Amino acid sequence: MTSPSPSSPSFSDYLDQAKSYLDNLSPLGKAAVAGGAGFVIYMHYKWLSTRPRRTPYVQPFAKDLVYLCQFPRSSAVPNLSPFCLKLETWLRIADIPYRNVENFPITYRSREGTLPFVELNGIEYPDSGLAIKDLSLILKKESLEVHLNDEQRAVARSFEVLIEGNLWPMFLKFREQHVDELLALQPPSLFGPLTKFMNFFARHLITTNTENKLFYSGIGKHSEQDLIRLSEEDLLAISKFLGTKHYLTGFKATKVDAAVFGVLAQIIYLPFETPQKKYISQKCPNLKDYCERIKNRYWPDWEEATKRFSMKSDWKKKTPNPSPHLTPNGRSLS
């Protein structure tokens, strides 16, 4: 009787063997392997993300339909990039017909090397803030903020800069400490059979890239305690200005609300504790109510986007959850 032939080792077996091998290396050996592998993967990533691509990306395209190119969904928030979440939220606030570009290659970027970007009638508009400005002019959406006076516009601009240029990079310092949990939020099909392999090296790349960004911005030179104190001051400033208003500038959502929501949603809805999340819970509960209000009004498909990783943009066909009506003292009437 012949013995059964052994089955061929799977890719997962090879990965486990490689992990075992690395675990048995000396600290210097591990550093050498990690550095070499990280360099190879980084160079390959840079080549993929900077190589020429067709433009416009969407061909053929529908006339006057906005195509949104962004990172894939996550299981906690519709996008782990506050700028992608900001742009898509604004498109919904402005009631602009758009379509998410599904299966958009994760290594592709705009002509400026960033995500998100949009395309309209074959023309690319990079950068979330500039895209909002350009689309407002082209699609005649300036009326969304016609009710704001000069002082309100100045304050709104100040808060947009504060939350994206100051609070967000400070929060990044604490988000990177949960890199494994972040990777677990990505769609399981993102890298297919290479998911375990890519996650193995992504931890190093995410941490290194984040530290470099923070260092060169100056924020990374501060101690964690100072970053906590400064971010709490930012959160308190937003909270005090918001007060019991529905949105930052009153009863109508504007582009500053999309920007603020894009960042606060990362702090509030990611499934791990950070000093900023704790501070909001203890000292600024109105910021969580504010995010819930925007989420219920403009993201009725939140569960579908985060649990099924759906990129559908027919959000108005969903029935939004009613937002609570607040009295001047902030109490709910519902």
Rank of each mutant, 00 (worst) to 15 (best):
V161Q: 15
I163W: 12
I163N: 08
E164L: 12
E164T: 12
G165Y: 02
G165W: 01
G165P: 13
N166P: 02
N166H: 12
N166E: 10
L167S: 07
P169M: 10
L172Y: 00
K173N: 11
R175I: 09
R175N: 11
E176Q: 12
Q177E: 07
Q177V: 04
Q177G: 10
H178F: 06
D180M: 09
E181F: 03
L183G: 00
A184F: 01
L185W: 02
Q186S: 03
Q186F: 03
L190D: 06
F191I: 11
F191R: 01
L194Y: 11
L194W: 09
T195R: 01
T195W: 03
K196S: 15
N199G: 14
F200A: 14
F200D: 01
F201L: 14
F201S: 08
F201K: 03
A202I: 04
H204T: 11
H204I: 06
H204A: 14
L205N: 01
I206T: 02
I206G: 02
I206M: 05
T207D: 08
T207N: 07
T210M: 00
T210I: 12
T210V: 11
E211V: 01
N212Y: 00
N212G: 11
N212A: 00
L214R: 04
L214Q: 02
F215V: 01
G218D: 09
G218K: 05
K221P: 04
S223F: 03
Q225S: 13
L227D: 09
L227H: 03
L227W: 03
L227Q: 05
I228W: 08
R229M: 14
S231A: 15
L235Q: 08
L236N: 11
A237P: 01
K240L: 03
K240V: 13
L242T: 05
G243Q: 13
G243P: 13
T244Y: 04
T244C: 10
T244E: 10
K245I: 06
Y247D: 09
Y247V: 13
Y247C: 11
L248K: 15
L248H: 15
T249N: 15
T249R: 11
T249P: 08
G250K: 01
F251W: 02
F251I: 13
K252W: 12
K252H: 15
